[in-house]
Simulated scan of single mutants.
Amino acid sequence: MFDPNSSLLAGALTRDQLTAALTTAQQAYLDLSSGAKGVSFSYAQGDGTRAVSYQQTDIAQLTAFIQLLQAQLGIVRRPRRTLRFRY
């Protein structure tokens, strides 16, 4: 059973901060799922070419983080268990 008093997010953050973090995480999930955010970019400049790379977030980790935030805020009672298939 999930206990918000002993979770990783207990204590330091206010409810407004947790809500803002949830909104940001959900937007990142939407951007990552839809392909709206790139990971690597290259461009040519007057003195040569440049490249910028960003770390790609693992969608499973992002989903787990969203579920933890939702549980901490009381939106869901506990995070959903991972689905495992048996053959």
Rank of each mutant, 00 (worst) to 15 (best):
L73G: 02
Q67I: 14
L69D: 03
A64H: 07
R80G: 12
Q61N: 11
L68M: 15
I75S: 02
L62C: 00
I66K: 08
A64T: 15
I59A: 02
Q67K: 13
Y54N: 02
R77D: 11
T63D: 09
R50Y: 06
F65V: 15
R77T: 15
R78A: 10
I59K: 04
R80F: 14
T63P: 09
G74K: 12
S53Q: 07
A64W: 04
Y54W: 04
D58Y: 03
Q70D: 05
D58W: 01
L83S: 03
Y54A: 07
Q70C: 07
D47T: 08
L69M: 09
T49G: 05
G48P: 04
R77V: 15
I75W: 03
L83H: 00
D47F: 06
Q61L: 15
P79E: 10
P79F: 11
Q67P: 14
L68S: 13
L62R: 02
T82N: 02
I75Y: 01
V76D: 02
A51G: 07
L62Y: 00
Q55C: 05
T63F: 06
L73R: 05
A51N: 08
T49R: 01
Q70G: 05
R80C: 13
R78N: 09
A60W: 03
T57Y: 02
A71W: 00
Q55R: 12
Q55Y: 03
Q70E: 08
F65W: 13
R78E: 09
L83Q: 02
I59F: 00
I59D: 00
V76F: 06
R50H: 04
T82Q: 06
A51W: 04
T49A: 01
Q55N: 07
T63L: 11
A71K: 09
Q72R: 07
L62T: 04
Q72I: 15
G48D: 01
R77C: 12
A51F: 08
G74H: 10
Q55I: 12
L83G: 02
A60G: 03
G74I: 15
A64C: 13
T57P: 01
A64Q: 11
G74Q: 11
T57W: 03
I75E: 00
Q72W: 07
R50V: 14
G48I: 07
T82R: 07
V52I: 08
L68Q: 13
Q56L: 12
Q61T: 15
L62W: 00
G48A: 00
T57R: 06
L69T: 13
Y54H: 01
F65N: 14
A51E: 07
Q61H: 09
I59M: 02
V52R: 01
I59V: 08
T63R: 11
R78D: 08
L68T: 15
R77H: 12
L68W: 05
R50W: 06
Q70T: 12
V76E: 01
Q56F: 03
Q55G: 03
I66T: 13
S53E: 05
A71L: 08
Y54I: 11
R80N: 14
F65C: 12
L68N: 11
T49D: 02
Q61V: 15
A64G: 14
L68G: 11
Q72E: 09
R78Q: 12
I75C: 05
T49M: 01
Q55W: 02
D47P: 00
V76P: 05
A60S: 08
L83R: 03
T49L: 05
